[in-house]
Design a protein around this nucleic acid. Structure first.
Lengths: 232, 232
DNA sequence: ATTCGTAATATGTAGCTACTTAATATGTCA
DNA sequence: TGACATATTAAGTAGCTACATATTACGAAT
């Protein structure tokens, strides 16, 4: 049929195109892997890999015995890469700056206790810091670090290394939870970010866990104009 | 060694844990797949699948001949599922409402022409609509639809079906570009969203393409309080 | 030394077999 | 008719072989 055999990406694209062109619509059932394999003259494992990929990207749903069908409620799945803030700044060609505002041991407020699912209030390390790009405020982070899982943080000089960077390199997480929302700058944050109070800020909240134990939660308020773009 | 053989997810978790515990740190080179396979008494293909997964999630980097190494610049990869707005609303248990504000043929402004990479200014269909949750404003969308790729949209009654939904079901895309940012509500949007001018709004911009041809671009201004959460 | 071609090597892919697992369908018995 | 055990089905996983491909490493020629 063809001089070159089909790779699993070819198979994936082929099925993808069939869905795109309406050959199969939302909710429709696709043939069994084995039949597609025969049709395309390739191995079932090739179709299986192709289908896995389509399933991962949210285009189809696969169930044992039930077969494969086009998702009736199509989702657009977007992925974002969030790297260490220093690298993010340096990648734009700007000079990175870091400024520690404060590091204190406090009992976290209700909201922070809630995201951690804590019952009893335990003191945590609160680190507030400002990331700069070409000496201009870039991201203001308000971070709470669990001292049970990261006691070593207390012996660190946080004026030199950002807690962000140290944690990413030394405390890899298991589970991650992210929230995005917009918030008006209060006077305090406006001052630190060098903007006017009331300015709309994109806020990125991240909480990381290792097993059931929380590691840290950050509220990163980005400077006005900050944009997050999806990969691919 | 064990009564049950290791699956590729077991292998993945095992390597993941080795990185978590510091057995291998950022930048470190991992053993060859074949060696790991022998070490764990499983097939190379099993290790390969495990490694692929770790690579996909941004934890390790793999290069032919170069081997596998822990990413020196770890990224946290977050995925978001964006579904049809109606489904999103209904899933919260709220009643969905849709209100068409206007549909006109216009030549798009510079900014829209730019995201589409258009050289010559061609008229497009502009659809402005409001999505409601329990009769309260939820998302205000300002959409531009390319008439070259979707001429059928002109014969639709957009008071009944949202352009959002029709496009997702009928014009699947090839490529997607997303931007997130925060913006202060201008008086017009504030009125439509039932909030005060200046309020911080989370804005989600999406542009979809089929091949090289643009399909649509939307600027979705979410009502205050809107939050986006990452999956898993 | 520098350049360039070639060999060596680790991952990537395809194909096959065999078996497992989850979900559906069916058939039996009350 | 309904409930429950059992068979069937289609995807999921593991193992193996063989070959492809991308890079690095090395060695020869200039």
């Amino acid at each position: 049929m063809s001089d070159t055999r089909l790779g699993w990406k070819d198979v994936r694209d082929r099925i993808h195109r069939m869905i795109l062109t309406g050959r199969y619509g939302p909710g429709d059932k696709l043939p069994r892997d084995a039949d597609i394999a025969e049709e395309l003259n390739c191995a079932r494992s090739t179709v299986q890999r192709a289908m896995q990929d389509l399933s991962d990207s949210g285009l189809v749903e696969r169930r044992r015995k039930g077969g494969t069908r086009v998702r009736p409620d199509p989702v657009t799945r977007a992925t974002f890469d969030i790297s260490i803030t220093r690298h993010e700044v340096e990648q734009t060609g700007a000079a990175y700056g870091y400024q520690l505002i404060g590091a204190t041991q406090e009992v976290p407020p209700r909201g922070v206790q809630a995201v951690f699912g804590q019952k009893i209030a335990q003191p945590m390390l609160r680190v507030q810091a400002l990331h700069l790009a070409d000496a201009r405020p870039y991201i203001l982070e308000d971070r709470w670090i669990c001292l049970q899982t990261s006691p070593e943080i207390l012996s660190l000089d946080l004026t030199g290394i950002s807690a962000n960077e140290w944690l990413v390199l030394n405390k890899p997480y298991d589970r991650l939870d992210m929230r995005f929302y917009a918030e008006n700058a209060d006077p305090a944050r406006a001052g630190l970010l060098g903007t006017a109070p009331g300015e709309a800020l994109l806020v990125i909240e991240r909480t990381t866990w290792i097993g059931d134990a929380p590691i840290t939660t950050v509220k990163a308020s980005t400077a006005p104009g900050y944009r997050l773009r999806s990969q691919s």
